[in-house]
Simulated assay, not measured.
Amino acid sequence: MMFALLLLGVFGLSLSVSSATQVGLSEKILVFPYETDFSFVALIPQKEMGLRAFTLCMRVATELPEDRQIILFAYRTTDYDELNVWREKDGRIAFYMSGDGCSFHLPPLTTFRSSLCLTWESRTGLAAFWMEGKRSAYQVYKPGHIIRPKGTVILGQDPDKHLGGLEAVQSFVGEISDVNMWDFVLSRSMIQAWHYGHKVPKGNLFDWATLEYEVNGNVMVVDDD
Rank of each mutant, 00 (worst) to 15 (best):
Y80L: 12
Y80P: 01
D81V: 04
D81K: 00
L83K: 00
L83E: 01
V85W: 01
V85M: 13
V85C: 07
W86V: 06
E88R: 06
D90Y: 04
D90M: 05
G91N: 06
Y96P: 01
M97H: 11
M97K: 00
G101V: 03
G101E: 03
G101H: 00
C102T: 01
C102M: 02
S103N: 03
S103L: 03
F104M: 03
P107T: 03
P107I: 07
P108A: 13
P108W: 08
L109S: 01
T111M: 07
R113S: 05
R113N: 00
R113T: 05
L116W: 01
C117A: 07
C117Y: 01
E121A: 05
T124E: 08
A127F: 06
A128G: 11
F129P: 09
F129K: 03
W130T: 09
M131T: 14
G133S: 07
Y141D: 08
Y141T: 11
Y141V: 06
H145C: 08
I147C: 13
R148W: 13
P149D: 14
G151H: 09
T152P: 10
T152F: 11
I154M: 15
I154N: 10
I154A: 13
L155K: 15
G156A: 11
P159V: 02
H162K: 07
L163I: 11
G164V: 09
E167D: 11
V169C: 12
V169Y: 13
V169T: 05
S171H: 06
S171R: 02
F172I: 08
V173G: 03
E175D: 04
D178K: 05
N180G: 08
M181L: 04
F184W: 15
F184G: 13
F184E: 13
V185M: 12
S187I: 01
S187N: 08
R188W: 09
M190C: 11
M190Q: 10
I191F: 06
Q192P: 11
Q192L: 08
Q192N: 04
A193Y: 00
A193K: 10
W194N: 05
G197T: 10
H198D: 15
